[in-house]
Nucleic acid binder design. Structure first.
Length: 759
DNA sequence: GAGCACTGC
């Protein structure tokens, strides 16, 4: 490398270092006095150099003098366990392309390691970035803010973050970027070499989110194509060896491990002697036992869902009140606080309230009990928790590729999860964890790790992203854990029916555009084809509404009122049309802040839909998907239902008999219309957005369609030779005959196309 | 006549 141009690494160095004579040009005999990074050789930086630069009076990235706040924070940083191992880190980082790092809670890895890397990579001198991914948006935002403060720069300039709907970076200036794993995966889709980055750090890899898992596969392959790219996988202890082996560049060499101790307090673990037949009852009993007998300190109880949590809250409150009445001198007041994700943020904030005070000045102190879903296991940290009650269950997503259904199932947690839960008791001082199962069950029955999400999900979306990223052979892709072949086959099959992939598995032009939308392939497809039906404005709305959580509120004590409000907004032809109507009404009443609430709708979800709609609209404009509408409302509703068929022709059910049962097409599952469904009759053919398995199998968000549309817009899928014999096939046959102009001699019926409404 | 574990684009 002869010139500065070829070696941008040297650009930041004083002229003398670049081979240009003169320290005198700096006006100083010692250039290091002015230039904090003087003498830094990229990726050959050591701890001494960095420590010196950190103490320097000038900020090397802004060239401004360091503020007093910087110095104060720096003193705190020096006490982090990871700071003591800076030399070791630089040695390992300089000598290896891929590192696996483990650091427990409180080690400082998430804030410090990316900064260490920045001092070594010097990405600002060559227009590169250091990226650090997080599974959650809030984490990406809050860590970026913290690190910007630590580096004495403004958030969004040298240090920024990038999450969906919010890009807090400045191109050309930002060189350290925190981002969600999903965001980096999106980037990899369009730039498989991730050229912008000099180092990529995957944080919280042990959580094994779908996006992180896919990124690990992509980065492993990319490391061979880009020897200049460095990769750090950060994880909890238990998984380290698995990642080391996976990222070993040869079969027998593992990636090196950089290990940093955590800083937490010990937690004493107790087990029950016998298995508990009813874990909710046992949990309530344990909470009350702690309240009566243990020292002050708040309690965290893990349960599986909203209903269970609200129920337990009521029961604990009743029993605690009884205790106080019986024994006011030795039992203090107790508050129960529920915590789950669908609670409005304001109510979630209650977990940070102080525990209730003693009722008399020298009476027994009060206690706070937080009853939470898994959200408190990773996403939210509550200070002051000293006792954890862990019944050992959580709701987990499972995917059945045979019937293409994702459902939630209450299942035993893993050992790793149990340890994570116990750790929640030791964040501020030594704590106790009460496991409501036997030690033997813990040792022998619980799985080591929770199954990674990739093994429990429908992969249609992921497969499309991978194909777009240039991965041709999905089955032989080097996954950390390979999904079931049937799951991949199902995904490929769906994408082929949707014409996103051709018969050889190649991406079609349509598929390439579909991949650009942050949507399930079915939704992307119907949105992209909707201009042909001249209803793309409406499909845009419906797609956005289907992409956000349920907009309907149904408070326990006002169910009737809520149902009545919903009936007023319902469109009898289908729930998809109702969603359109809800959004339009919301939009027309935006001046009225109470509109959502008075109509029993979630203002939060509607605002989210608005946000998603805008994002999708921008993508449509970018790919020239026209935004059009038909004026005549009757024709418009027809067009919408036809466009729906283009995406959801595989999610169709046919009415069987008069009992309200439906049979899903091809899979032949017996399902019912979900009670929330707003159809005013039972049409012969319906498409549905969702199959849910609760008290029985239901289809939810349902709209009536005509059989001839299915034959017309999904000819390949409705090839009758692929159907098993039965009423559905006979009905399809009648419709097909009619289309072909033949007389149906079996029973003379017309396939139900002219069916009358009951009302 | 039911419910929404949790994330993410």
């Amino acid at each position: 490398m002869a010139s500065d141009k070829e070696n941008p690494y040297l650009a930041h160095l004083p002229p003398s270092e670049r081979g240009v004579s003169s320290g005198a040009r700096n006006g100083s005999a010692n250039p290091a006095a002015k230039e904090p990074l003087y003498g830094f050789m990229p990726r050959k930086v050591n701890g001494n150099q960095v420590r010196k630069a950190l103490e320097h009076e000038t900020n090397p990235f802004t060239k401004l003098p360091h503020t007093p706040q910087y110095r104060k924070i720096l003193e705190a940083r020096k006490k982090l366990p990871v700071y003591a191992q800076m030399d070791e880190f630089y040695k390992m980082f300089s000598n290896n392309q891929i590192i696996v790092m483990v650091g427990e809670t409180g080690s400082g890895k998430t804030t410090q390691i990316p900064q260490f890397v920045a001092y070594s990579d010097l990405p600002h001198t060559r227009g590169k970035l250091v990226a650090c991914t997080q599974p959650r948006r809030v984490a990406a935002m809050s860590v970026a803010k913290r690190v910007a403060d630590e580096m004495d720069v403004q958030l969004g300039r040298q240090v920024g973050y990038s999450i969906r709907f919010e890009d807090m970076t400045e191109p050309g200036t930002t060189f350290l970027k925190y981002m969600t794993d999903g965001m980096l995966l999106r980037e990899a889709m369009n730039d498989p070499d991730l050229q912008r980055y000099s180092t990529i750090i995957l944080d919280e890899a042990h959580e094994r989110t779908l996006a992180t898992d896919i990124l690990m596969g992509l980065l492993k392959a990319l490391a061979k194509r880009r020897p200049d790219l460095k990769i750090i996988i950060m994880s909890a202890t238990l998984d380290a060896l698995k990642f080391q082996k996976y990222f070993g560049l040869t079969t027998d060499a593992a990636a090196p491990l950089f290990k940093v101790p955590g800083r937490t307090h010990p937690v004493e673990v107790f087990y029950t002697q016998e298995p508990e037949p009813d874990y909710v009852e046992a949990a309530i009993r344990t909470v009350l036992m702690i309240h009566r007998a243990e020292d002050p300190g708040d309690i965290l109880l893990f349960l599986t869902g909203e209903e269970e949590i609200e129920d337990a809250c009521r029961k604990i409150k009743l029993e605690a009140d009884d205790l106080i009445n019986q024994d006011p001198d030795s039992v203090g007041p107790l508050v129960c606080i529920p915590l789950y994700s669908s609670l409005p943020p304001q109510q979630q904030q209650r977990i940070f309230d102080a525990p209730p005070s003693a009722r008399t000045p020298d009476g027994p102190p009060g206690r706070k009990v937080v009853i939470s879903t898994n959200i408190a296991e990773t996403s939210l940290t509550i200070d002051g928790i000293v006792y954890v009650v862990d019944p050992g269950f959580s709701k987990q997503k499972v995917y059945n590729p045979r019937i293409r259904v994702e459902s939630l199932l209450v299942s035993p947690i893993s050992k790793a999860s149990a340890q994570q839960r116990a750790g929640r008791a030791g964040r501020t001082r030594p704590g106790k964890c009460f496991r409501l199962y036997t030690e033997k069950d813990f040792m022998t029955e619980l799985e080591e790790q929770t199954h990674p999400e990739i093994l429990r999900s429908n992969l249609a979306n992921t497969v499309l992203e991978l194909v777009k990223a240039g991965i041709k052979d999905l089955v032989r892709f080097d996954y950390v854990d390979a999904p079931a072949p049937e799951t991949l086959m199902r995904a490929l099959e769906l994408l082929n029916y949707l014409a996103a992939l051709d018969d050889d598995g190649n991406l079609t032009p349509l598929g390439a555009i579909m991949a650009e939308f942050p949507l399930d392939p079915q939704l992307a497809k119907m949105l992209i084809v909707s201009p042909e039906f001249r209803c793309s404005n409406e499909m845009l709305t419906i797609t956005a509404m289907l992409s956000v959580p349920n907009v309907w509120l149904r408070p326990n004590n006002q169910r009737k009122e809520a149902d009545a409000a919903k009936a007023l907004l319902s469109v009898p032809d289908g729930d998809h049309l109702t969603l359109l109507n809800v959004y339009n009404s919301y939009n027309q009443n935006k001046y009225d802040k109470n509109w959502a609430w008075t109509n029993y709708l979630s203002a939060r979800a509607l605002a989210q839909a608005d946000n998603v709609r805008e994002q999708l609209k921008r993508t449509m404009e970018r790919y020239e998907v026209e935004l059009v509408s038909i004026q005549d409302p009757k024709k418009l509703y027809f067009a919408i239902r036809q466009a729906l068929c283009c995406g959801f022709f595989m999610q169709v059910a046919h009415k069987e008999g008069e009992k309200g049962n439906y049979l899903t097409v091809k899979d032949n599952q017996v399902v019912g219309l979900h009670p929330s469904c707003g159809l005013d009759n039972q049409p012969e053919w319906v498409i549905f957005n969702e199959f849910v398995l609760t008290t029985r199998p239901y289809i939810r968000t349902v709209t009536e369609v005509r059989v001839e549309w299915l034959l017309e817009y999904a000819t390949q899928y409705y090839d009758l030779s692929t159907f098993t014999d039965g009423e559905t096939k006979r009905a399809l046959q009648r419709a097909a005959n009619k289309r072909a102009g033949k007389f149906d001699r079996v029973d003379g019926a017309d396939g139900g196309a002219q069916k009358k409404r009951k009302k």
